[in-house]
Amino acid sequence: MAYVDAIVQGILLGGLYALFAAGLSLIFGVMRLVNIAHGDFIVLGAYLALITIQMTGLHPFLALIIVVPVMALAGYAIQRGLLNRTLGPNLLPPILVTFGLAVVIQNTLLMGFSTDTRRLAAGSIETASLSLGPISIGWLPLLTFVVAVVLIVGLEQVFYRTAIGRAFRATSDDAETARAMGINTRHVHALAMALSFAVIAIAGVFLAVRSNFDPFSGPARLIYGFEAVIIGGLGSLWGTLAGGVVLGVAQALGAQISPAFQILAGHIVFFVILAVRPRGLFPRMD
């Protein structure tokens, strides 16, 4: 029974990992850029929520009204002002620049907030749970999972049903021709990053409500998000959710064996998938 419980909790944990991964998957899809600072921006979002709550007294979920647009603007500015300059045939510059950003963010947060761990208080939802026979499901993990699913449905709609989604796909296919068709690809890239940062903001708040965080919590979030993307298959948002769930279940089962084994179990599943299905579980058909 403990294992059934672990699987259920793992699936729900996968929702959080899908939140970490969705923004990463999105910008890779649009501009083949991997943001090494992705996890650190998630943590930055969490600190931004912390400040917002301290200043306004808002509930963490209501603080999203402020954190999401601020982060989205920041994403637009970073892409337009910095990262667009690094996009080109050479793959190293964007990796190096986002790597530099990661270190700068971590250490700036360290100077501003010390190494103290923080958490956002969300009230009774943190501990409330729903009993299904012997298994109890926390409302917060369930809400996280539902938000992840809704977000992925929403992103799919944006990608496949809207004009900006068409521009995302066209730019991803062939940026030079997209420009000849009147698309300002620098603006499109910046919009994609803004969208990714909006998702990052949501991920940051859910991370901060569910667990402690400190200035160095980012890299682990990047790694979980990255593992979810690779396990699920590049370029597929639903695959990313599936990847998050596989990773969450692997970690939860690993923790059943020994608490010290939790993270390593996730890494092992990642390497096994890489060995037997290098394109992930649900690669995009093309």
Binding site: V34, L91, I95, I223, F226, I230, H267, F270, F271, L274
Partner: peptide
């Protein structure tokens, strides 16, 4: 793994 994904992959390997 390609490019940046190789980069993060090496990181996961080191963590493991």
């Amino acid at each position: 793994l390609e490019g940046a994904y190789f980069a993060i992959g090496t990181w996961v390997a080191a963590e493991s």
